[in-house]
Design a protein around this nucleic acid. Structure first.
Lengths: 255, 255
DNA sequence: GCGGTTCTTGTCGACAGGACCGTAACCGTC
DNA sequence: GACGGTTACGGTCCTGTCGACAAGAACCGC
């Protein structure tokens, strides 16, 4: 049906019916830690479709930029963060009808920021918000398009990345306490880790963390001030903390 | 510049200059084991650009199908394999100029087959071939487009999948010896595994493998016949074999 | 039968990691 | 300033995992 509507960008000699045009977008799932819980940055849609609903920030890829550059640009436009922050591609989505307007294939990116609260406060508070992840995963909050699935996949990806890369350090500041770092693992994996054993794994030989000599101020509840560390080079090659095998894997054999 | 060449597929009210059209393709990296080595199925291009060079099989996504369906269709068209084989999306590629004809974003899929030799023999031998992976990774063979990077990423993905999923069983037949299964790990990870320890991990409680009572015929060199197993249910939840920590990670600390 | 090859079973020991206790250093209130 | 509450830190015990290695079992060709 569309054989006569060939876009001018397509070179002559190709039948556009063989190359159905798609719009390509990049969606960036921005994760951050806040009050010990994992949060995702969402924006409220101002236009149809899904007007007024929350959505993952994103935008169209330009022909002159790579996918990574598009993700970096969208992150910068949404948050003002210009640093080459941790930005990981985790999936592509192209189900027919996922955008009622046209054929859209989107590429999902995962970004990890620290202390994004100030950034959100700087933008229009009604348009952008940090949403606790649990509110999304338990179905309390609905998202536009297939963005709920995209967020789910991003979370699953960060759970794996946490085990095989140094992504954990991206959630904390330049200097951090081991309790802060441990809270990252606990929030993302949804488990509790023994503080003493965590320390032994991290502070063991291997250049994971480097003590700065400084100490953190205790919280309002008191407690001994924790030592401040900064990330070592070993994170570039992997992570020191591993999830224990899922006990539910062992099911009794049926003879 | 292109504001006047809006495709008819795009609804009125949208400026096509805001939605630059892309072609979306799906490329399937088909891996298989042959003679104890990892091979990838490539096809020889019959048209420009890159005419005559080897490339990963793939094709255009249709607006009416999902990305997964497109990958499944391409796999079926190239190999005749219709089974819902293991098919994993691993990345999207959209660098400008990666296809000199137009703007193309491709989504990479990883397929694992067993005994693909007969399939390749059935097609035009000059158009499809199983290439040992080492010939690609050492730069002996050049690939069209950015397909070398795509293959590299597919390999990296299968290395991770091998550790966290049951993808290893997709490389072997319905029944297999533990030596065959071990060869999969050794070929993909490029390491040697102790046969005795491998057996202990696999044959331990947990329904990894189920003995069939049958035995394999020894090779020409002789040797005790190996018992034949079939895959158990535990593979659905992960893999039993894990790579040991990279010893090169431990570098001496510089005071 | 005999050496060679491969598969299978068994043993030993190092090490990682979970559980747990005691101590140190801060907070608040009394 | 003593005291309980809270958090951080260091150490011990112990078990399960896993690598290294040895020995036996079952086949081959000669």
């Amino acid at each position: 049906m569309a054989t006569t509507t060939r876009p001018a960008d397509f070179p002559a000699g190709y039948d556009s019916s063989q190359f159905p045009p798609f719009a390509v977008t990049v969606d960036v799932v921005i994760l951050t830690m806040s009050q010990g819980r994992l949060h995702v940055l969402l924006i409220r849609r101002g236009e149809a479709p899904y007007k007024g609903m929350w959505a993952v920030p994103g935008g169209f890829k330009r022909p002159t930029e790579t996918l990574d550059e598009a993700a970096k640009r969208e992150l910068s436009e949404e948050t003002g963060v210009d640093a080459a922050s941790l930005l990981t591609q985790f999936g592509a989505y192209g189900d027919p009808g996922r955008d009622p307007r046209m054929n859209v294939v989107t590429v999902g990116y995962l970004a990890v920021l620290r202390d994004v609260g100030a950034i959100v406060a700087g933008t229009d508070a009604a348009a952008a918000s940090l949403v606790p992840l649990v509110d999304l995963l338990d179905g309390t909050l609905n998202l536009a398009f297939d963005h709920l699935q995209i967020v789910r996949d991003a979370i699953e990806r960060v759970r794996v990345e946490l085990e095989v890369t140094g992504i954990a350090t991206a959630f904390v500041g330049a200097t951090f306490t081991l309790a802060e770092l441990r809270a990252v693992y606990e929030a993302i994996w949804g488990i509790e880790l023994d503080a003493a054993n965590f320390r032994r794994s991290i502070a063991a030989d291997g250049d994971w963390v480097i003590p700065t000599g400084l100490r953190s101020r205790p919280g309002p509840a008191g407690g001994r001030p924790a030592e401040l560390y900064r990330a070592g080079r070993a994170w570039l090659a992997g992570g020191p903390i591993h999830r224990q095998q899922d006990a539910s894997r062992e099911e009794p054999a049926k003879p």
